[in-house]
C-alpha cells in the first residue's frame, strides 16, 4: 500500500477548495458567457437563468455595426499601437543610458523611475485637462496616446533598464573593438539581445492603453473618437442598459488583452516584485 504522505492526504480537499475558489473568481465571466447569447427578451426575465433558450448569435453582428463597436475597436487599436510606438522610441535610449553610462543624477533617475510607478493620473487629471484645452488636444486620439505614454513610461523604462543591465558588458566591448559605434552596438547588439524585454514592455504598454478609461472619460466627447472602454460604458444608459450588447462587447474587448496578458504574465510579476521573484 502506498504511504499516505503529506501531499496525498491534502490533495482532495485542496482540489475541492480550488474548484470553489475558481467558481467565485470566474463568476462574472460565466455570467458574461451566459448573457451574451441571450436575446433581448431573455434578459429581463425573473428569475434569471443560465442557459439561453435560443442562442442569439446575431448579437455579435448587431453590436459590431449598429452599436458602433467597430469604430470603438479601431480607435482602441490606434491608441494602443500609437502609445506602444511612442513609448518604445522614448524608453529604449533612456533605459540604455541608465544601464550603461555613469553620469551625475543616475541614482536619482533610477529612484524617480521606481517612485513614478506609484503615480495616479487622477492627481493631474484636472490640470492636464487645462493643458489639453490650450494645446487643442481634446477629442483627439493623439491626446490619449500622449497621456498613456507618460503613464506607462516609468514602468517600461524600468523593465528595459533591467534587461539592458543584465547583458554582459564584454559583448558590447568586443563589438566596439571591432569598430562598431556606440549607437551601432545599441541597435545591432543590445536591442536584439533584449528583444524579449522589449516585447514585454510593448505588450504591457498596449494593454495599459487598451484598458485606459480615465483619459477618454475626461478628454473625449465625440462618439467617433471613443475607444472601447468608454464606448461600451455608453451602453450603460441612464434609464436602461442593453445588457446583452454590453456583454458581447465586453467579450470582444477582452479577447485581445487576455491573449496578450498571458504572453507577458511571468515577466510582469518578476518586474513588479523585483529581485525577490524570478519569472
Amino acid at each position: 500500500m502506498k504511504k499516505l504522505t503529506y501531499r496525498n492526504r491534502y490533495k482532495i480537499p485542496v482540489v475541492l477548495l480550488t474548484l470553489a475558489l475558481l467558481f467565485v473568481m470566474l463568476f462574472p465571466f460565466f455570467v458574461m458567457l451566459s448573457t451574451m447569447f441571450k436575446g433581448s427578451t431573455e434578459i429581463y426575465v425573473r428569475p434569471p437563468y443560465w442557459i439561453p433558450k435560443t442562442f442569439a448569435f446575431g448579437n455579435f453582428v448587431k453590436v459590431w455595426s449598429e452599436y458602433h463597436l467597430f469604430g470603438y475597436f479601431m480607435n482602441s487599436l490606434l491608441v494602443g499601437l500609437g502609445t506602444t510606438a511612442l513609448n518604445s522610441i522614448i524608453i529604449i535610449p533612456a533605459a540604455y543610458a541608465i544601464a550603461r553610462f555613469r553620469f551625475r543624477g543616475r541614482s536619482f533617475a533610477l529612484y524617480s523611475l521606481l517612485a513614478m510607478q506609484m503615480f495616479s493620473p487622477v492627481i493631474i487629471i484636472i490640470s492636464l485637462f487645462r493643458i489639453y484645452v490650450k494645446l487643442n488636444l481634446l477629442d483627439k486620439l493623439g491626446g490619449l496616446i500622449l497621456a498613456n505614454t507618460v503613464i506607462t513610461l516609468s514602468f517600461t523604462t524600468w523593465l528595459m533598464f533591467g534587461y539592458f543591465a543584465s547583458i554582459p558588458k564584454e559583448i558590447e566591448d568586443a563589438a566596439r573593438i571591432d569598430g562598431c559605434t556606440r549607437m551601432g552596438t545599441l541597435t545591432r547588439i543590445m536591442i536584439p539581445i533584449a528583444a524579449p524585454g522589449l516585447v514585454t514592455a510593448m505588450i504591457y504598454t498596449f494593454i495599459q492603453a487598451w484598458n485606459d478609461f480615465l483619459f477618454p472619460l475626461s478628454f473625449i466627447n465625440a462618439q467617433k473618437k471613443m475607444p472601447l472602454t468608454l464606448g461600451i460604458y455608453q451602453f450603460v444608459g441612464r434609464w436602461s442598459t442593453q445588457w446583452e450588447m454590453l456583454n458581447v462587447a465586453a467579450f470582444i474587448a477582452l479577447i485581445p488583452v487576455l491573449v496578450l496578458f498571458f504572453i507577458i504574465e511571468k515577466q510582469l510579476v518578476a518586474g513588479l516584485a523585483g529581485g525577490a521573484v524570478k519569472g
Binding site: 478609461f213 450603460v236 474587448a253 477582452l254 487576455l258
Partner: peptide
C-alpha cells in the same frame, strides 16, 4: 485564476454591475 487580473478593469466593473443587478442579475 489569472483571468480577473488580466481582464480590463473598466470592463470587469461593467460586467459586475450586471452581475449585481438585484432583479435580473445572476
Amino acid at each position: 485564476f489569472i483571468i480577473p487580473w488580466a481582464s480590463s478593469v473598466p470592463i470587469s466593473a461593467m460586467l459586475w454591475k450586471w452581475v449585481y443587478d438585484h432583479e435580473f442579475g445572476l
